[in-house]
Design a binder for these strands. Structure first.
Length: 119
DNA sequence: TTTTTGACTCTGA
DNA sequence: ATCAGAGCCAAAA
């Protein structure tokens, strides 16, 4: 491997966050705090938000990362566009809040098929 | 190394 | 429900 690929998985917080965000299924959402916790740094929600703003990896579903309690959070191109992207996946956003956030909330451990009761 | 920044979150008024 | 304040963390300056 060449040193040029130092952006690859190296155990850094940033890489951990990127890998997690990439796993969020379509039609589901995850909070900044959740991502931080999954990355092994509970409480680093703010740091996660900053990484989202960087958008270092195009193609990642950054729009699926929202605020605590289902708050829409922010977005580089505007929260309106973020809401539109979510709507396109079947996630309804009303008054800056994700409807049925509790059910659409995603966790790495359940992303597979642990859902015993489909929506 | 210290300071600043930012798509956060919780608590209390 | 809405707002201000404080706490927290990682990356960049």
């Amino acid at each position: 491997m060449t040193v040029a690929r130092r952006r690859a998985a190296d155990g850094t917080f940033r890489d951990a966050v990127h890998r997690i965000v990439r796993q969020i299924p379509r039609g589901r959402v995850c909070t900044y705090g959740d991502v931080a916790r999954l990355a092994g740094r509970p409480g680093a929600a703010r740091a996660v938000g900053r990484l989202m703003a960087e958008g270092a990896i195009p193609g990642l579903p950054y729009h699926r990362v929202i605020g605590a309690g289902g708050a829409i959070g922010g977005y580089g191109s505007g929260v309106a566009f973020k809401a539109a992207l979510l709507a396109a996946e079947g996630v309804t956003v009303r008054r800056g809040r994700v409807v049925d956030f509790a059910r659409l909330r995603w966790s790495a451990s359940q992303g597979n098929a642990t859902r015993r009761r489909p929506v």
